[in-house]
Structure formats: C-alpha cells, structure tokens
C-alpha cells in the first residue's frame, strides 16, 4: 500500500509522512487551509505556495515549506506532486508514487472552474481517495453564470427596496467566490472582519478580488445604502447584523439545495454555491483518474461506496475526521472565525 489509514490520518510508510492528519505528527502534507485539513500542532508542514499564506494566517508561526503545483519532490522512497483541486485558492490534490504505483488524495475538490481557484486537474492513478461531501444525486449545481445572475438580481432588488443584502459565506473560499461572482457596480461590498482578514492575505499574494470594506465599530451604515454584506454564516444569526437595519439574508452553500436546510437556517434566500464537486463532478473526476480502487471520505460515504461498487470499482469507506463542510458541523467548527477575528 502506498498509503495507509491510521489513527492520526492518511499515512505514507515509504515517505514517513501524513496527508491532512487530524492528530499532531512529525511531517504533514496539507491539501488546503480549511481547519479540518490544516490542523495545528505538526512539526513540519508542506503545502502549495498559494495555500501557504492562509495557513500561516490561521495557524501562526509554523514550520511550513512551500511547493509549486506540478513540482516533483522526493520524500524518503516516495515521489510527491501537488495538483490543483479547484476548491479554494492554493488547494491541491496530492499525488504519491512509490515503485510505479500511484495514489492520489483529493482533499476537497470542485471540478468546474470558477474565477477564483486554480482549475481542477484530473490526475491518473491506481487508487483515489476522494471526498464525497455532496455524494448523492440530488446535488446538482447550476452554471456560475446562472448563479451570478441570481445573486445580482437579489442584490439589486434589495438595493431598490432600500435594504442591505447580507450573505453568509465561509471566510476562506466561499466569501471570495461570491465576490468574484457579483457585479461590483451594483454597490459597495462590506465584509465581516473574518472575511476581510482572508481577503487581505489573498490580495497580498496576488489573487484578484473586487474592492471591499471591512465593517468595524465605526462603520456608518447610512453611508452605504444597498451594500452587499459578506459574513461567515454564524455571524448572520447573531447580533452582528443588527446595526444594518432592514436586511435581506442569504446563505451561499451547496446545502441550500435542500429546502429543509435553508428553512432551518432561517435565511430568506439560499444560493446553491459550493466549492465542492456535485454528484456529476464526483463521478466524472473518479472516472478520469482511471483508478480501480476508490476510497470515500467525508460525506455520504456508505451510500457513495455502494454506488461505486455497483459501477464496478473496488470501493471502500475510510473513516476520517474531516468535516469541513459537513452539514451543520461547518457553522460551528471548521470555519468559525478565531477569537481575534471576531472583533469588528
């Protein structure tokens, strides 16, 4: 086995390293900066150069080495390369080769290109460890053009009605995706501190984003009528939004595909915008790897495994502790702003 599944995480014996481990280890290769994949406490980190700044921002002073997409790195007896996963800026699938056998860890991925992340690149392999957060056929995403139009119409209508439009989007990835999807000529974009901190990190590394204004204690809401407010979903539920007066609320998440979830979150509008692959995307990606063995992680793993088995794959479920975009878990753990970030 090129990779093994241990209590600490996904392990490579020939290179003596882990990929996205959930317990502290000596050497960790990290697919991307979301909290359930990039955890605190490892001795050495390796991640793409584009993922590095956010990880430093979130994890502080870590021993982090950078690698370019496609760059070959020999670690012990294993050869490692990172390939774009299309999930958030800098997110990677990690390819590990040992004695001609190739395994790929997908991390989180999205197959359809957007205007933010490096586009997903299928990687041929023998075994593919895939996420399946949205691994059910009910999850089917619309084209970005349609989603953009939905966002813009909503924002414009709010503006015409003298309301603010407030959208809940995770501070790394989704928030910036929304920013690249809306038409900034409609009005100003205001951001929660957690979002703006990430924006600053990404802008500094050259990711192009439209202008946005950080909401602080002194923000004069009257000076920005009809603004689009972008904040982590948890902030929409709290008192943070109160000072904006009349607000229409929306949430950007793949889970908004389910009416029950949207109603539970008490948002008026649900925008089905995800940074994960939908059902079709997962199936296409797996087919394009050419892999015979497929391991399913986070999501509807048991059902997805049965489906893959029916399609002729040698499929299995891997129990992991990834739950970044798990329904309801996401709000509280993976993407919650840290103490320092919540201060606005």
């Amino acid at each position: 086995m090129v990779l093994e599944f241990k209590d600490e995480g996904i392990y490579c014996p020939s290179g003596d390293f882990y990929i996205d481990p959930w317990r502290p280890v000596e050497r960790a290769l990290i697919t991307h900066g979301h909290a359930d994949h990039a955890r605190w406490g490892h001795r050495y980190y390796l991640a793409t150069e584009a993922a590095g700044p956010v990880m430093r921002h979130r994890l502080g002073d870590i021993a982090l080495d950078g690698i370019a997409f496609g760059e070959k790195r020999q670690i012990g007896d294993a050869i490692v390369t990172f390939h774009p996963a299309g999930h958030v800026p800098g997110s990677a699938q990690i390819r590990v080769e040992h004695r001609g056998e190739v395994w790929v860890v997908s991390g989180d991925y999205k197959t359809v290109a957007d205007r933010l992340s490096e586009p997903f690149e299928p990687v041929r392999c023998h075994a593919f460890i895939t996420e399946c957060t949205f691994g059910l056929p009910v999850f089917d995403w619309e084209d970005d053009a349609i989603l953009s139009a939905q966002l813009n119409t909503w924002w414009q209508t709010c503006r015409d009605n003298g309301q603010h439009a407030a959208i809940g989007a995770y501070s790394l990835g989704k928030a910036q995706r929304v920013m690249t999807m809306v038409d900034p000529s409609i009005g100003p974009i205001l951001t929660h501190g957690a979002v703006e901190n990430t924006n600053e990190v990404l802008r500094a590394q050259g990711v192009p984003l439209p202008a946005s204004v950080r909401v602080t204690r002194d923000t004069d809401v009257k000076a920005t009528p009809g603004a689009l407010i972008i904040a982590p979903p948890s902030a929409l539920a709290g008192s943070w939004l109160r000072k904006f007066g009349s607000v229409s609320t929306g949430i950007a998440s793949g889970w908004m595909r389910l009416r029950g979830v949207r109603r539970r979150r008490a948002a008026e509008r649900g925008f089905v915008i995800s940074d994960h692959a939908d059902w079709r995307g997962l199936n296409d990606a797996i087919r394009e790897t050419g892999a015979e063995r497929v391991f399913a992680t986070h999501g509807y793993t048991a059902t997805f495994k049965d489906w893959l088995t029916e399609q002729g794959y040698d499929a299995a479920v891997v129990e992991t502790e990834y739950e970044g975009d798990a329904l309801d878990a996401a709000d509280t753990d993976a993407d919650a702003p840290t103490e320092a970030e919540t201060v606005t």
Partner: peptide
C-alpha cells in the same frame, strides 16, 4: 436512470418525497 435504492437513500437525506423527486 438511477437504482431504486439510491433514490431511497437520497430520500432519507432530503426528508421529503416531492422534493427528492424534484431534485433527481
């Protein structure tokens, strides 16, 4: 064009028959 069992598994998640049909 999906097996019945997968429809049922999806229904368990969506929690509403009309919506599951609509989505699939």
């Amino acid at each position: 064009s999906l097996p019945d069992w997968l429809f049922r598994a999806s229904y368990d998640v969506v929690g509403d028959l009309a919506e599951t049909i609509h989505l699939m």
